[in-house]
Amino acid sequence: MCYSAQIQADYRKYQRQFGASVSLELFVELFWERRRRGDWSKLPKAMLAPFASPEGEAEQRAAELITAAEREQTTALEAELFQQKTRLAGAERALATKPTKKAQNDQRIATDKIQRAQRNLADLHRSELLPRDSRVFPGYYAPVLVVRDGQLTVIPMRYQCRLPGWTAAMERQKPGTYNARKDNLKKAWRQLYGYQHGILIVNAFYENVTRHRLEHRELAPGEKEENVVLEFRPEPQQDMLVACLWSVSKGEEGEADLYSFAAITDEPPEEVSAAGHDRCIVPIKPEHVPAWLQPDARNLAAVDAILDDRNQPYYEHRLAA
Rank of each mutant, 00 (worst) to 15 (best):
D257C: 03
E253T: 11
S273F: 15
V272L: 02
K285S: 10
I281N: 01
E223T: 05
S247Y: 01
L241C: 01
L230K: 12
L214Q: 15
F261R: 02
I281S: 00
Q237L: 03
A262T: 12
E270A: 03
A263L: 15
E270I: 06
G254H: 14
C280F: 05
Q238L: 06
E267M: 06
Q238F: 07
V282D: 02
L245M: 11
R213G: 01
P268S: 01
S273K: 15
R279I: 01
L230R: 09
A220S: 04
E231L: 13
S273D: 14
P236H: 05
M240H: 09
P283S: 10
R279Y: 06
E231W: 10
E215V: 09
S260I: 14
S273Q: 15
T265E: 13
D266R: 04
R217A: 04
S273P: 00
G222D: 05
G222K: 04
P221K: 10
D239S: 14
C244N: 10
A274E: 15
E231F: 07
P269W: 13
K250H: 13
E218A: 14
E270H: 12
E271H: 05
A262I: 07
N227E: 12
V242M: 07
C280L: 08
V272N: 00
I264V: 03
P269M: 14
V228L: 08
Y259E: 00
G251R: 09
W246I: 03
S247H: 13
A263H: 03
G222Y: 02
V229T: 11
E253M: 03
Y259N: 06
I281W: 07
V272K: 00
V242I: 15
V228F: 08
S260N: 11
L258Q: 07
E215D: 14
L241E: 13
V272Y: 03
